[in-house]
Simulated scan of single mutants.
Amino acid sequence: MSLYRDTGVVLRVHKLGEADRIITLLTRRNGKIRAVAKGVRRTSSRFGARLEPFCHVDLQCHTGRTLDIVTQVQTVDAFAAPIVGDYGRYTSACAIIETAEKLVVEEDAPAMRLYLLLVGALRALAFSDREPGLVLDAFLLRAMAFAGWATAVRECARCGAEGPHAAFSVTAGGSVCARCRPAGAVTPDAGTLALLGALLHGDWDVANAASEAARRESSGLVAALLQWHLERQLRSLPLVERRAPRARATSE
């Protein structure tokens, strides 16, 4: 049996026997792995609290016949506490880790870019004042791009003609010009398309200034795109709490 060490984010836990758990993680070098944490459910366990969803850990495992075995765990970032204490952050984080798990289909598949994106999204939810819904939509758009499903915002998704274009088609993969517009395409507000572009490219000044209507419409489009590409709906996405933009202070 060989030992290996990696950093990863806990995506899911399952009970195994009376005291063990199967831990699913997205790691930096080894992609998605499933490992057994022995005795982790006992109150005397040395690293039980470190192997909960949203935890960013440095761990050592040794390979087994079917599942690897966790032998050491150290906390890298304590994301869980500030996330689970806020319903909006918690539901957004649940949708984020569920998406990460769905996008890495095969275990041990390379996923460093998605891992770095996942860590950045959880850090923003845990330690920044950004709206959880915006962080979630930004993660989903970028994660789909990493998976090969980049959303066309300014150019036509079919012919590549420069925009901006008025129509948006989920089945086509984003904005479409008048010539390529398929049946069922919608006409979102210009502010919605600007918000999608800002979330995709990390322009948070534009994203934070977006109206409530633009945020609501963009969230619907992002959810529809993700469902179209995954061919299923995330279980956690309908539970996400969407907040209105914070009122801006004005001075006379």
Rank of each mutant, 00 (worst) to 15 (best):
A93W: 03
L103A: 11
A224C: 04
T250M: 12
A210K: 06
L141T: 14
G48P: 06
G220K: 02
V105Q: 12
L237Y: 05
H229L: 02
V104S: 06
T250P: 00
A145V: 12
F54P: 00
A167F: 14
G133E: 11
V13K: 11
R215A: 03
L226H: 02
A172V: 13
R232D: 13
D68V: 10
V40F: 01
T75H: 00
T187D: 09
V206I: 14
V105F: 13
V240E: 00
D77C: 04
N208P: 00
A150N: 09
L3D: 02
G17D: 09
L134R: 05
D203G: 00
A37C: 13
R232I: 13
T43I: 13
N208M: 04
V153Y: 02
A244P: 05
S218H: 00
R216E: 11
A80M: 14
A247G: 05
E241I: 15
A161N: 10
L118V: 12
V240N: 01
H229Y: 15
P132A: 09
L59P: 00
A166G: 05
L103E: 08
P164F: 13
A185K: 06
D203Y: 01
S175L: 02
V240D: 00
A19Q: 08
V119K: 03
G39P: 08
T71G: 01
L16W: 07
L196N: 07
R89L: 03
A124R: 13
G220E: 14
E52T: 08
L116A: 13
R50I: 05
E131S: 15
T24H: 10
A49M: 01
C156L: 12
T27H: 10
R235C: 01
A194Y: 00
D6Y: 10
G174K: 09
H56R: 03
D205R: 12
C55Y: 00
V40S: 14
N30V: 04
Q72P: 03
F47K: 03
R215V: 10
G148P: 07
C177A: 14
A178G: 12
P245S: 10
A249K: 07
A143S: 15
V40N: 00
K32D: 01
R123M: 02
H14T: 08
A214Y: 01
A167H: 13
V13L: 04
S219G: 15
A198G: 09
F139C: 13
S236P: 06
S92Y: 01
H165E: 14
C61D: 01
M144V: 11
T75M: 14
K32M: 08
E231I: 07
C156F: 09
C156N: 09
V119Y: 05
T171W: 04
R248F: 00
Y4M: 06
F146M: 14
R154W: 11
L221N: 07
I22A: 10
D86C: 06
I23N: 04
A49W: 06
N208R: 11
E131H: 09
G184W: 05
A209H: 03
C156H: 12
V222E: 02
W228T: 08
S219W: 04
L226M: 12
L226R: 07
L122N: 05
L118I: 13
G31Y: 08
A19N: 08
